[in-house]
Structures are given as structure tokens and as C-alpha cells.
């Protein structure tokens, strides 16, 4: 089973989209003299994409729709940002992850209301919360961040980045360019060289990565990234997502079906309360907890080579 990529799965995830309803923030609309305040842009965006890749088009749409609003037309791309329910959205996170994080925070609504409503902002860039770009460099910043993630993932899998650095210059360029142009085949021709197989001499035969590149997101908490081995070296048992989550986040996750977890209640009294165990969400989907982590990593990672798992309560 090792090394093979299930292209059916990879391609379906690649084509996954999330419908967005984008409107201009009322304060920015007032400040920039936007007349059509109730106007929204409906856009279907690939879950793997980044907000910086749509920012220019969004600004142009509202400038044109507002009768060629010159002030909107002159807004620098580096000043464009997005927010949802008052929270700035990180442009270096994939759109699908942002959507999962936003919807996971709302326990009352088990299924995300679509379209996902976000607000575009053209003023008052929150430099304390979002990475500030430089004028006209947002695309190269996004590709740099993307390549850094791929190298970080490579280091987790192999303990070095020889696989990425071993790619030809053309293949390295192709990773980002085929991603940005949404060319599945071209992207996977290169990406398979990174994702398939493991590191040499590790785990007897090199089938398994050293650690799985994965981050877990829990609302209100710091991002969790642990050196997680995908296999028990003695029994060759492949750890499941549920086993890993209950191990690294026992306060939030239990691998027992219908299980409960105990932790201090957030109201500061220090009282220990039981909560229903969280549900792992990836690409908008509830992931079966018995899915082997190594399979998930190979087939269901984002193009940045990381699994970005959101815990929903």
C-alpha cells in the first residue's frame, strides 16, 4: 500500500470549492465613497486557493460595479484584507482551512451555512494580526509562504529537505505555478516525488515518513503541531487519526465513539467539566477517526503538504 497516491481522492479534493459571498465592509464603503453598499460578489473559490489570489479581482469587481470608483481602483493590493465575523482571515492559510475554522467555531450550526459570508476590507490593515505585504508583492509572498510550508513538511517527513532541494529548478517552479493555475496533473507530477514513499533507512525500508506534517486547529487555542510518527515501530500498526488526536489533545478528543473529555471550563473557575469529544474536520468533511494517518497524509494533505485538521465541537 505504501507510496501509492489515490488519484481519485486527490483530484476530488483538488477540485473542491467553497462558495463565497463577499461584501464591502460598511465603514470602508463609507470612507471610500462606495455608493452600492448592498452589493455582494458571489464567487466559488477552490478550497486549496489563497485569498491573495482573488484579492485583485475582488477589488476590481467592486470598483467597476460602483461605476468605476477611482478611490477603490487605486487601493494597493497589499492593503486588501478579508474578515469574517470581525476576525481577520489569514491570507497565508488555504481558503478551505479558513472556512473550516470559521464554521467549526459555531457549535450551534452543525453544517456550515453557505455561501460563506466574508467581508472585504480596503483600509486599516491589521498589521498586528495579519502578515503585512509590500506593494505589488502579495503573489510572490504567497508563493514564498507556500514553498516554505512544503520545505517544512519535507523536513518533518525526512529530517532534511533533500527531496525538495533535489527537485530541478523547473520542477520547483512548476509546483507553485501549476498550483496557482490549478493544473492538477502538472502539480502532482512534481508533488508525488515529495509525498510518495518515506525517507531512506527509516522504519526499515523507508516506507513511512519520520513525522507526519499536520497541524490541528482548536478555536481559541494556539495551533498544535507535534512530531507525530505514523506507525508503531514494533508492531507495524499504522496509527489512525483518532489515536493520534486522543494522544496529543486528550482534553478535546476521545477515540471512543460518543466519548467525552474532561477539562477545565473556560470561565476561569478552574472547575473540571466534561464535554462531548470534538469532531475532526478536513476539507469540510468529518474524517472517520479510524483513517490511517499515513494514508490521510499522502492523499488528503493540502498542496502545501500539510494536513490542516480543525476540531469542531
Amino acid at each position: 500500500m505504501q507510496g501509492a497516491i489515490d488519484e481519485t481522492v486527490a483530484e476530488r479534493l483538488w477540485d473542491g470549492q467553497v462558495p463565497l459571498r463577499i461584501s464591502v465592509h460598511p465603514a470602508d464603503a463609507a470612507a471610500l465613497g462606495v455608493h452600492s453598499k448592498s452589493l455582494s460578489l458571489y464567487l466559488s473559490v477552490h478550497r486549496f486557493s489563497y485569498l491573495t489570489l482573488i484579492a485583485t479581482d475582488v477589488r476590481r469587481f467592486f470598483a467597476d460595479a460602483d461605476g468605476g470608483n477611482a478611490r477603490l481602483g487605486e487601493v494597493d493590493d497589499a492593503d486588501i484584507w478579508f474578515e469574517c465575523k470581525g476576525e481577520p482571515l489569514k491570507w497565508h492559510y488555504p481558503v478551505g482551512l479558513l472556512a473550516d475554522m470559521t464554521t467549526a467555531a459555531n457549535a450551534a450550526i452543525p453544517i456550515a451555512p453557505l455561501p460563506w459570508h466574508v467581508t472585504v476590507r480596503f483600509l486599516n490593515f491589521p498589521a498586528d494580526k495579519l502578515l503585512r505585504g509590500h506593494s505589488e508583492s502579495m503573489l510572490s509572498m504567497t508563493s514564498d509562504a507556500f514553498m516554505s510550508m512544503i520545505k517544512e513538511a519535507d523536513f518533518m517527513r525526512n529530517g532534511n529537505i533533500k527531496k525538495v532541494m533535489g527537485l530541478s529548478k523547473q520542477d520547483q517552479t512548476q509546483l507553485w505555478e501549476s498550483f496557482a493555475a490549478h493544473r492538477f496533473r502538472d502539480f502532482w507530477n512534481v508533488n508525488a516525488q515529495l509525498v510518495a514513499g518515506g525517507s531512506e533507512g527509516v522504519n526499515g525500508g523507508g516506507s513511512y515518513p519520520r513525522f507526519v506534517p499536520m497541524r490541528v486547529y482548536v478555536a481559541g487555542c494556539a495551533v498544535v503541531q507535534e512530531p507525530v510518527s505514523p506507525v508503531d515501530g514494533e508492531s507495524d500498526h499504522e496509527y489512525t487519526l483518532g489515536e493520534i488526536l486522543s494522544n496529543i489533545l486528550p482534553r478535546y478528543y476521545s477515540s471512543i465513539p460518543g466519548g467525552q473529555v474532561s477539562r477545565r471550563s473556560p470561565n476561569g473557575t478552574g472547575e473540571v467539566t466534561t464535554f462531548p469529544a470534538a469532531v475532526p474536520i478536513l476539507h469540510g468533511i468529518e474524517v472517520p477517526p479510524d483513517t490511517p494517518l499515513v494514508w490521510l497524509s499522502r492523499n488528503c494533505s493540502y498542496p502545501d503538504n500539510f494536513l490542516h485538521v480543525v476540531l469542531r465541537f
Partner: peptide
Amino acid sequence: TSMSAAEQGPATSPLASPSVPRRPSSA
């Protein structure tokens, strides 16, 4: 203020896999 998610007990099986040759001592 927000490290509660990263709280954890001592490393147990998946994290302390003996198959990992050079586990960072930082664990």
C-alpha cells in the same frame, strides 16, 4: 494566554515511537 490546546501529558505511544531514530530531545 492560549496554550491550553498544547497542554499534554507525558508522551505516550504514537509520539514516543521507537521507530523514530533521532527524536528531538526537546520532546
